[in-house]
Amino acid sequence: MSDLFSDVFLGALFFGAVTAAIPLLLAGLGEQMSEKAGVLNIGIEGMMIAGAYAGFLGAYYSESLWLGFATGAFGGIVVASIMVLLCVRFGLNQIVIGIGLTLGFEGLTALLHHFQFSRTYPRLPAADVTVVPYLSDIPILGPALFKHHLVVYLAVLLVFVLAFVYRRMQLGLNLQAAGDKPAALDVAGVDVVRTRAFAVFTTGALAGLGGAYLANIGAGIFVPFITNGAGFLGIVLAMLARGRPFWVLCGALLFGVCLSLTTALQVAGINIPTDVIQMIPFLAVMAMLIMFGRKSSLPAALGIPYERGAR
């Protein structure tokens, strides 16, 4: 057992946990903003996979990870713009369009990848990391938490920025109103469609960024269907977090530890099917829901398209 909890093992475990958590964090934060504004964004998986592919292409051809992140976010925004047009502007059913976008972009990226790379899977060079001075000297945790790509710290910083936006800024209040009582927001002279569109575009950018991180840094490679339900996990995180960005971070880290535990245990020579460990976070969440399950505080107008003057 002493082997199992060696410094190397713990270091790898926590490093992997952060790497696995970041895409979930970005997806969860994005979904949270959409849901706050009253749009149930089932298409987030499609936004992530589009971001993953666009991000990978950007990084592969420009040989710059930052350009890859930019193209990834742009890929997510492109998918988001379809969602904005159909669900926010036209008021079509958000679940139908969301599932359509997810299926469509999973299919499209796999198809494009097939025709572009056939069966080769080119690999990106390892990402350069930003070492946080002093903090990274802490034993075990230091290298695991403070030797990541700069984008990781920015993602964590975003949690606090969003918490500030939601609690202290007019924009946060507008978003909340768009989800809870859009008619009131309309009467107050704020464009509901524009507010919701802003939220969905932001979701697209964040989900695309998350997808790009997943492909470019998490895996260093793009394979079809690489997101593998990460977007849906984002939906779960957003709903559990009940509007609080900090809770999304906690949830993402919990899932990240469990995802990383599988690989870490295999490295340590203990062979448990990955499926057993992948069940842990869901079991934990379901147990929490059963024990503390009460009316979840979802926005009142979630999933209901806004039509001015409709009764």
């Binding site: 139908v96 359509g100 976008l101 198809l111």
Partner: peptide, 23 residues
């Protein structure tokens, strides 16, 4: 040599076009 995922894409396009037609 067209991968099976094309079917997935086709289903998605049908879904979205039908939703727009409905609208």
């Amino acid at each position: 040599g067209v991968p099976t995922v094309f079917t997935l894409l086709l289903v998605a396009i049908v879904l979205i076009v039908l939703a727009i037609a409905e609208y």
